[in-house]
Computed example of a mutant assay.
Amino acid sequence: MAAPVLGLLMAASAAAATEESFKKPDWDQIANIKEAALHLAQMQRTQGANRAFQFIDACYRTHSLQVEYSRPFEACIAQDYLETRILALIYSRMPPETLKRLGMPTPKMLADTMGRRIVTAFKSYNVPVSEVQAFKKLVDEHGFPVFFKALFPDSKVPEITDDPQNSDAAPTDDVPAKDAPKDDAPNNDKKQ
């Protein structure tokens, strides 16, 4: 999932930003990412994936109004990436025909729509490619394990792959069976 998204992010950022024009974050990005991951995981466990996506949408709408790239806006991006990655992992365990029959997005559709949201977010603040790459690496290394363990405390954190169809990376515990999706999963037109 991450490879196509990162390519889009880099292309969009390269056209719009230079290292000199971007004010580097002056906050602890790792702490911000971990806090955002834990908050969203707790929300999803208690209120479901639809509520988590509604929160992310509200987060973008609120924090994108700021003049400069900010800590809260960065948390929105991290949460969007993490939520989408988890759902793509879960949905990758389901047969495509089941996803289609239930009106659910494929892992690729999830990745593509998330990619468009994140490209727009980074582009709106002229974030350069080097910062996008560094941020993605921080989210993968620090945010994903926190998010995953909060959602699936008894499961081993899977290795992060760039393939949204990789069912071997999906959690094996606490995940619905292939033909039993979660009731609160988003539908195809969510967050486009």
Rank of each mutant, 00 (worst) to 15 (best):
A2W: 14
P4N: 10
V5R: 03
V5F: 00
L6Q: 07
G7N: 08
L8G: 09
L8Q: 08
L9S: 12
A11Q: 12
A14I: 07
A15T: 10
T18C: 12
T18Y: 03
F22M: 02
K23G: 04
K23H: 09
K23Y: 05
K24N: 15
P25H: 15
D26G: 11
W27I: 11
Q29D: 11
I30A: 12
A31K: 13
N32T: 07
I33P: 13
I33E: 10
K34F: 03
E35Y: 09
A36R: 05
A36I: 06
H39E: 07
L40G: 09
L40W: 00
A41W: 02
A41H: 07
Q42H: 14
M43A: 01
M43F: 06
Q44I: 13
Q44S: 10
T46P: 00
R51Y: 01
A52S: 10
F53M: 14
Q54N: 11
I56P: 00
I56T: 01
T62P: 06
H63F: 13
L65A: 15
L65N: 13
Q66G: 02
Q66D: 07
Q66E: 09
V67D: 13
S70P: 07
P72E: 08
P72C: 02
P72G: 08
Q79A: 04
L82Q: 11
T84Q: 03
R85V: 04
R85W: 00
L87Q: 05
I90D: 12
I90Y: 09
I90P: 13
S92F: 05
P96N: 04
P96K: 00
P96E: 04
P96S: 06
E97Q: 09
K100T: 02
K100R: 06
G103D: 03
M104N: 11
M104I: 10
M104E: 13
P105E: 04
K108M: 15
M109S: 15
A111K: 12
D112A: 15
T113M: 14
T113P: 03
T113W: 09
M114E: 03
R117M: 14
I118R: 05
I118A: 08
V119L: 12
T120I: 12
F122K: 03
K123A: 05
Y125N: 08
Y125Q: 00
V127P: 09
V127Q: 13
S130E: 07
E131T: 09
E131I: 08
E131D: 14
E131G: 05
V132F: 02
V132N: 05
A134N: 11
A134Y: 07
K136R: 15
K137A: 11
L138Q: 10
L138Y: 04
D140R: 04
D140C: 01
E141Q: 08
E141V: 01
H142P: 00
G143D: 02
F147R: 13
A150W: 07
F152W: 15
K156G: 06
V157R: 10
V157D: 06
V157M: 04
P158C: 11
P158K: 00
E159K: 13
I160G: 05
T161C: 05
D162A: 10
D162N: 14
D162H: 07
D162G: 12
P164H: 01
Q165R: 08
N166S: 10
S167D: 03
A170N: 10
P171M: 08
D174C: 09
D174M: 06
V175D: 02
P176Q: 00
P176G: 01
K178V: 13
K178S: 15
D179M: 14
D179V: 15
D179I: 11
D184C: 06
P186I: 15
N187Q: 09
N188T: 09
D189F: 08
